[in-house]
Each structure stands twice: as structure tokens, then as C-alpha cells.
Computed example of a mutant assay.
Amino acid sequence: MANAALKTTDAAAIIRFPKKLSSEQEEVELHDIAEACAFLQRIIWQTRTKHGKLAAKAGLCPTTVSNIAYGETRLPRLSTVIALLRALGFKILARAIR
């Protein structure tokens, strides 16, 4: 049920991803799936992770990862974004909107 709530644009505003790639920023607040996808796209390129290797670690098809990395998929499922971020070493947190 919580997962369904996170699929809406407003609820996704509370998802936070602690960033382990740089000491300058520990958390990133994302406001919707499109913003999360753009963030994920940047991280895939910054880490220079092979799409096939990342896909295997996330339990996804390599084409899915490639499509996100190249901007062909702009609004992936929330479960796909979460799987990729976890595979990249991120911890996902959510807070209630008040």
C-alpha cells in the first residue's frame, strides 16, 4: 500500500536517496519519478557502470538500464528506479507528506 502511494507525483516528493558517490552531499531529495529518472541517468554515467552488470545486480533487463541511461525511457516504474538505485549502493527513505 505504501508503494502505491509513492507512485503519485506528490508522494514521490519525500523520497530521499543518501548519496555515497561524493562527500559533498549525503542526501538527494527527489520530487517525482521524472526527476528520479534524470538523477539515476546522471549516476549511471558518473559511475561508468556497465549496463549489463548493473542490470544483473538490479534483476532487470540490460535494455531497460540502457534505455534509462540514454534517456529513451523518461518515466520508468518506481520499482525499476528503486531497484537500480539499490544496485548502485543507495539507501532509499520515505517520509509522510504533511
Rank of each mutant, 00 (worst) to 15 (best):
T49K: 14
S66N: 04
T64F: 02
L84P: 03
I15P: 04
I68F: 03
R42S: 15
H51E: 12
C61S: 13
K20D: 11
A4I: 01
R95T: 12
K50L: 12
F90Q: 10
A96D: 13
L30D: 00
V65D: 06
A69I: 09
A36Q: 11
Q25M: 03
R74A: 13
P62D: 14
V81P: 03
G89P: 11
S66H: 06
E26A: 08
A11E: 01
A36C: 07
A2K: 02
A13W: 10
I97C: 12
A69D: 03
Q41N: 09
V28Q: 05
A34E: 10
I82N: 06
I82Q: 08
D32A: 05
L88W: 12
A38Q: 13
M1A: 11
A58E: 10
L54P: 09
L75K: 12
S79L: 09
N67W: 09
T64P: 01
G52D: 14
E24M: 00
D32R: 07
D32V: 02
A5E: 09
L40F: 07
Q25L: 02
A58D: 13
I92N: 05
R95S: 15
K19C: 08
G89K: 07
R86F: 05
T47W: 07
R86K: 14
I82A: 10
I44F: 04
G52F: 04
K50N: 13
S79E: 09
K57S: 13
A34F: 04
C37L: 00
N67E: 01
I92R: 08
C37V: 07
L40W: 07
I43F: 01
A12R: 15
L78P: 06
L88M: 14
A34K: 10
K19Q: 01
A11I: 01
E27A: 08
E24C: 01
A5L: 15
K19T: 00
K53L: 11
A36L: 11
E35S: 14
A58H: 04
V28R: 03
I68C: 08
I92C: 10
N67M: 09
I92A: 08
A83D: 12
A87L: 02
W45S: 13
P76A: 11
S22L: 04
V65Q: 01
P18Y: 08
A4G: 04
A69E: 04
A56M: 08
I97L: 14
S23Y: 03
L78W: 13
L6G: 04
T9Y: 11
E27H: 04
I15F: 15
I33T: 10
S66V: 01
A94V: 14
Y70N: 12
T47V: 15
R74C: 05
K20F: 10
A11F: 09
I82Y: 07
V65N: 05
I43N: 03
T47H: 13
